[in-house]
Nucleic acid binder design. Structure first.
Length: 803
RNA sequence: UGGCCCGUGGUGGAAUUGGCAACACGUCUGGCUCUGGACCAGAAGAUUCCAGGUUCGAAUCCUGGCGGGCCAACCA
């Protein structure tokens, strides 16, 4: 199933679920945007994850508008979101779904919760609820309304639904745990009263459900199997599960809801499938902000021209910028899925964009910053139409219907890029300078003979001669000029407005350490060039064509033109730069040759007495003479190290377990080591461990008398912890006895060495870390039964013998 | 004296569950080339947050510490 070399943790979970037959192998994910803003690059990775995972495992994905807050949501956003997802290349199951489709079901589910004594109507004010909630360190105080009768709650809630109360008079709360360390579990709110018109349900509901209540139940109703969201919802998972476990799906009358595939019986928590929530870390792109609030501010305060401004990290903005959907998908795949905080560098996006564009965009020539060139030996008034290919040889995938070539005019007066000429060229400059010959791309070789300067010394015109034998770029004598530059014919070129968009912020983390993002806003995020000159062929091309302007970058023709700048009145042509070409020239400067070293670590002073775990155990010993006595016995009689004695005497259970195992007659220190280092490693919950102290003692005596290897003992230990049993029997039945026969090991080593000639070579060339590799291979070949010390010795002998 | 989560080259991340610290972006060399692009070949860059411990062997197990993120909207 796995096409990739490795799986991210989400795919790993899905794959495991399928393997174990959960939900009958069914996979249904959902993408649940709130329609209160445009989708952005951060959403893109969630979209790619949800739709991608489902598609890869034969599943489906629903698109559900999480529209539970009537005051902020808008149908325009619904359309924009759906359009963006479709544009990204994904198809959702059935029609667009809405949480508001489930308001009726949610209401019935809530009614039943009240009947079950699991929810109550609270009549505290908003501020009172806040005050009663307590803090992370202090528990909540109970609302005086917390113990209303079921009858009263039912009555009040129905009146809330019927619109009998004003906004804020009452709320419905789940009755969970006021002292819960997880704040989300302190009687969370389920419904608020809001006499507001909802864009879909109009005025039919004066009460609206909150996210935690609506989201998980919507998942249950839709039959979602894997509910994937971002890290900040980790605390909400406990509540998500609680709601799923304390609702009776049959009450929702799910059959009546269009598209509902989930459901279940009338028992508490009988959802089938039972949805589970998983969280991944959102991706943070350098030099961008993505919070809805910030994005909205950028639009409202007119720092940008709209949600689809090419500088915006929105899907719509990137689309207008000329970034293809494929590039966004590639980018999302490239940055992966994880749980660690992260900061993606912008180069990764740029790379994905170039990767997508390189193999399919037609090449044309455009001069952004024109410098006049006169070819002195070219006849005045003459024009040649030269044949120029649209695609270099390595473009295998040109857009359908594009011709292979076009004609470009050549004449006596041309424009070249100002930066392609230099009076005092720096080292390694390969472009035009006085006395040097360069190739004009798809044109002739020209040699610079002279320049004309104005009174300030600025070059205003370059004088050249051309070699008539070099038409369309090659010389009969095979000579190669130092460089190739792009150009257009001055009389034939069309002028255009070019928008050079740069990053919106000048700081990689725009919100770090500032009050307001206007402090880090990049004032030069848009540069509008008016006098750019393009080859005339572009005029006849379809609108919104993406080109590569050779040697410059990728540009898309923009028809919308609300950049705020004056449109070129003559040709009405506007181009937006999607991304510049990768440019290795001029990039090298002192200090850029090596990667920056990691900052010197600040020396951390040794801390005294901050051993919180130790302190706790110390305290336990002070108040419990049994533990104190055990500790003393461990250190004095048994000569255990203080560390081991300390850890062993942390509870009476632990002490008893150790003493019981010791009674089998094994070495005290060896046993202590195993209890602390190995037993804890394999059993995360001692309560459920099937391991008996006698069994552990027996196991260790097998290690002690060299009947089995340590590695074998560890696998047996795992078995003992999960299913119990007698170690001697296990060893006997499964034939796990230790191999310490020198000849036998020597043979296995020889075999392993023969099977890995290249590793042997590398070892002998000095990569001695490979010794571990060989030991590992031998251990594997003997199912861990060999004596590792002996194996190591023989491996080293053998490997060194070969040198 | 709160709970939960997370620390692996500059960046994003692998490591098949204790056995060669992958891969990609970026950086640097060189080659090729009618784009200083693409492509090809190569290089540098890592005390796997730190300190102890267990082990023949630790990114992985144990103990302790440090650092970062999220949570106390009638937002989602």
């Amino acid at each position: 199933m796995s096409k990739h070399g490795h799986l991210d943790f989400i795919r790993q979970i899905v794959e495991d679920d399928i393997a174990s037959g959960k939900h009958g192998g069914r996979v249904l994910t959902r993408f649940p945007p709130e329609p209160n803003g445009f989708l952005h690059i951060g959403h893109a990775s969630a979209v790619c994850l949800n739709f991608g995972v489902a598609a890869e495992y034969g599943g489906r994905t629903t698109l559900r508008m999480d529209d539970t807050n009537p005051t902020t949501e808008d149908p325009d956003y619904v359309d924009a979101i759906a359009r963006d997802i479709a544009w990204l290349g994904f198809e959702w199951e059935g029609g667009v779904r809405y949480a508001s489709d489930y308001f009726g079901a949610l209401y019935k589910l809530a009614l039943q919760m009240i009947k079950d004594g699991l929810a109550y109507v609270d009549s505290l004010s908003e501020t009172e609820i806040r005050e009663y909630r307590g803090t992370v360190k202090e528990p909540s105080r109970p609302s005086p309304y917390r113990d209303r009768s079921i009858k009263e709650n039912l009555d009040l809630f129905k009146k809330m639904r019927d619109g009998a109360f004003q906004d804020g008079e009452h709320v419905l709360r789940a009755k969970i745990d006021l002292a819960a360390p997880n704040m989300k579990m302190r009687d969370p709110l389920m419904y608020r009263i809001r006499h507001a018109s909802h864009y879909r349900t109009g005025n039919t509901w004066p009460i609206y459900p909150f996210y935690d209540w609506a989201h998980g139940q919507s998942d249950g109703i839709e039959g979602i199997t894997h509910s994937i969201c971002t890290l900040e919802f980790q605390d909400n998972r406990e509540l998500y599960d609680w709601f799923i476990e304390h609702t009776r799906p049959a009450c929702a009358e799910i059959d009546a809801i269009p598209g509902a595939e989930g459901g279940g019986g009338s028992n508490l928590g009988s959802w089938n499938p039972r949805p589970r929530q998983y969280e991944f870390a959102r991706r943070n792109l350098d030099y961008t902000v993505v919070s809805k609030r910030r994005l909205l501010e950028l639009v409202r305060e007119e720092h940008v021209a709209g949600w689809d401004d090419p500088r915006m990290p929105t899907i719509a903005g990137m689309r207008r910028r000329g970034i293809p959907a494929e590039a966004i998908r590639t980018f999302c795949g490239q940055i992966g899925v994880g749980k660690a905080d992260n900061r993606i560098s912008i180069e990764t996006l740029d790379w994905a964009v170039r990767e997508a564009l390189n193999l399919r965009t037609p090449r044309v020539m455009g001069v952004l910053d024109p410098l006049r060139v006169v070819i002195e030996n070219y006849p005045e008034g003459e024009v040649e139409w030269l044949k120029a290919p649209y695609f270099p040889q390595d473009v295998h995938d040109p857009p359908e219907g594009w011709p292979q070539t076009r004609k470009i005019p050549f004449s006596r007066t041309l424009y070249i890029e100002c930066g392609d000429f230099s009076l005092q060229p720096p080292a390694r400059f390969q472009r035009l300078t006085v006395g040097r010959e360069v190739r004009l791309r798809h044109g002739y070789f020209v040699t610079c003979t002279d320049v004309i300067q104005d009174e300030t010394g600025t070059v205003t015109e370059v004088r050249c001669t051309y070699d008539p034998d070099t038409r369309e770029g090659s010389a009969p004598d095979g000579r190669k000029p130092s460089g190739t530059i792009h150009w257009v014919s001055a009389d034939h070129s069309v002028s255009a407005q070019i928008c050079l968009y740069d990053r919106l912020f000048s700081s990689p983390d725009p919100m770090a350490g500032v009050e307001d993002f206007s402090e880090t806003l990049n004032p030069n995020s848009l540069e509008v060039l008016q006098g750019a000159q393009l080859e005339p062929s572009v005029v006849d091309d379809p609108p919104e064509t993406t080109y590569q302007f050779e040697r410059v970058g990728y540009f898309v023709r923009d028809q919308t033109t609300d950049s705020g700048a004056e449109v070129d009145t003559e040709t009405n042509l506007v181009f937006t730069r999607t991304v510049a070409l990768r440019d290795t020239w001029g990039k090298s400067s002192p200090g850029r040759h090596t990667s920056p070293k990691r900052d010197e670590k600040v020396e951390i002073l040794p801390l005294v007495g901050v051993d919180s775990g130790f302190k706790e155990r110390e305290k336990a010993r002070a108040s419990n003479p049994i533990l104190k006595a055990a500790y003393d016995r461990f250190t004095a009689d048994l000569k255990l190290t203080e560390d081991l004695a300390d850890l062993l005497s942390n509870s009476e259970d632990s002490v008893t377990f150790y003493e019981d195992a010791l009674a089998t007659g094994v070495d005290s220190a060896l046993l202590a080591n195993w209890v602390i280092h190995e037993v804890r490693g394999v059993s995360d919950d001692n309560q459920t461990s099937a391991l008996k102290p006698e069994a552990l003692g027996a196991l260790i005596s097998l290690v002690e008398d060299h009947s089995i290897s340590r590695a074998v003992a560890k696998t047996v230990l795992t078995q003992l912890v999960t299913s119990g049993g007698d170690p001697r029997e296990i060893v006997e039945v499964e034939g796990l006895g230790r191999i310490a026969d020198v000849e036998m090991i020597r043979n296995i080593v020889a075999q392993v060495v023969d099977e890995h000639p290249s590793e042997v070579k590398r070892f002998q060339e000095g990569q001695i870390s490979l010794a571990g590799f060989f030991v590992g291979q031998v251990m594997k070949a003997t199912s861990n039964r060999a004596d590792p010390a002996m194996v190591k010795k023989i491996v080293e002998e053998r490997l060194h013998a070969g040198t």
